[in-house]
Structure formats: structure tokens, C-alpha cells
Amino acid sequence: MASLSPPLRVCRGILKELRAIQGPSYKQSLAYNYVMEQFRKNKVTGERYCRAQLEAHHDSHTYLCLLMSTRSHLVLHNLYHSKGERSPEEVAGLVGLRMPTQPGGKGWEK
């Protein structure tokens, strides 16, 4: 069995992610109510070994991973990749060079 963090932590993790993506009104969202309901439903109610509970735990962990990774990926995307490629001028500037301002410099002579 995969090692998973305890259900309570997963639950709080999901709620934290939901708040991060949905803003302060996240408690009215469908996902919030569904997640809370599922976690309440799958609480241990007896001594019986419950496979469904482990499944729910794994699924919730997977969902948390989905939310977290999507958010982190989007942050990195916005930071590094959202603007497309840098212009030649910018690239040259990165290494302390400048593009020739007008034809006639080095490389233009016949």
C-alpha cells in the first residue's frame, strides 16, 4: 500500500487548495460540500477493516495531488513560459550584448 499522509491532513490540504483557487467564497462551492461530505461519511465507524475507506483515502490524496500540481504548474507557467519566447534584443541583453542597431555593421559587408 502506498504511504499516504493521514486523512485529516489530506482533507485540510484539499480545502486549502480550494480556497487558493476559488477565493474566500469557497465554502459555498460544490467541491467544498462534496469533499466535506465524503470525509465525514468515510470516518471509521467500527472495528471492521474497510477497503472502501482506503480507496477513498487514496483518491482524496490523488485529488490533492492534482490540485496542488496544477496550481504549482500554473505558477511556473506564468512565471517563465506565459510570455512566449524572448525577443532577440532581450536575449542579447541577457548576456550583456546589444543587437546591431542598423544594417552595415559586422556581417553585412559583402
Binding site: T62, Y63, C65, L66, S69, T70, S72, H73, Y80, H81
Partner: peptide, 15 residues
């Protein structure tokens, strides 16, 4: 911008 970026994307997709 390459390693973490790929990793999070892969995680999101696999999840």
C-alpha cells in the same frame, strides 16, 4: 523552469 515545470505537469496529468 524546466525540471519542476515538467514534474508538476506530469504529476497533474497522472493524478
Amino acid at each position: 523552469w524546466a525540471h519542476d515545470y515538467d514534474m508538476y505537469e506530469l504529476r497533474a496529468r497522472a493524478a
